[in-house]
Write a protein that binds this DNA or RNA. Structure first.
Length: 203
DNA sequence: CGTTAGATCTCCT
DNA sequence: GGAGATCTAACGT
């Protein structure tokens, strides 16, 4: 598997949980702007928290389309959020991109976001989509296209898992994945071990 | 530091 | 009518 070009569709034809974990540490750019994916979440057809749970609708139809394409949806009437469609064996699976550590095209992202703080450019799915300039016109777009680039890391990074953010159904599934120790997450990762006195769960 | 309200689209009941 | 895979500014402590 080359690590300097977007992987073939076959790479995305795996279970959403597997792909969500594998995408952490990969670099992702759109028209040269982006960085290292540090936070993802998996959503599956058999998952009450997923948009695909109740079947296809006009909004979520990209989730039932080809793997390796984007599913971009409007969140709370305001923001755009970006998913990568996966798992051909179970239509309706996707990986939500929740946070990126900005490394390329900082100027373009800062302009689109209206602020320059790298910590806040792509920390959250709505912010990430805005920084990368993705919206409804990218719904269904193929990652194999020239605007997109995903480069896998040379070595497997440290990845931590925890419950997904902002959902009210199937809240306990540990399908949120993050780069261990990253300072660019949408929210701190819930510590799996027992709380340490006086640290409020942080190290 | 914490909580809260408001922005207003898509789908479900 | 109401909730939701969110974000921001405004307040209270």
């Amino acid at each position: 598997m080359p690590n300097d070009a977007t992987p073939p569709d076959l790479f995305f034809a795996v279970d959403a949980v597997t792909l969500a974990r594998r995408l952490v540490g990969a670099s992702f750019t759109v028209d040269g702007a982006g960085g290292v994916i540090v936070e993802t979440e998996a959503y599956r057809r058999d998952d009450a928290a997923s948009h695909s749970f109740r079947g296809a609708t006009p909004r979520n139809r990209a989730m039932f389309g080809p793997v390796g394409h984007l599913y971009v949806y409007r969140s709370y009437g305001i923001h755009w959020c970006v998913n990568i469609v996966c798992d051909a064996s179970e239509a309706g699976s996707a990986v939500l991109l929740r946070a990126i550590e900005p490394t390329q095209g900082l100027e373009a992202m800062a302009r689109r976001r209206g602020l320059a703080d790298p910590r806040l450019l792509c920390a959250g799915p709505g912010r990430l989509a805005q920084a990368l300039g993705l919206d409804e016109s990218d719904d269904g777009a193929a990652l194999a296209g020239p605007r997109f680039r995903i480069a896998l890391p040379a070595y497997a990074p440290g990845v931590v898992a925890g419950p997904r953010i902002g959902i009210t159904k199937d809240v306990e599934r540990p399908w949120r994945f993050a780069l261990a120790g990253s300072r660019f997450l949408s929210k701190p990762m819930r510590i799996a071990t027992a709380k340490v006195a006086g640290t409020n769960g942080r190290v």
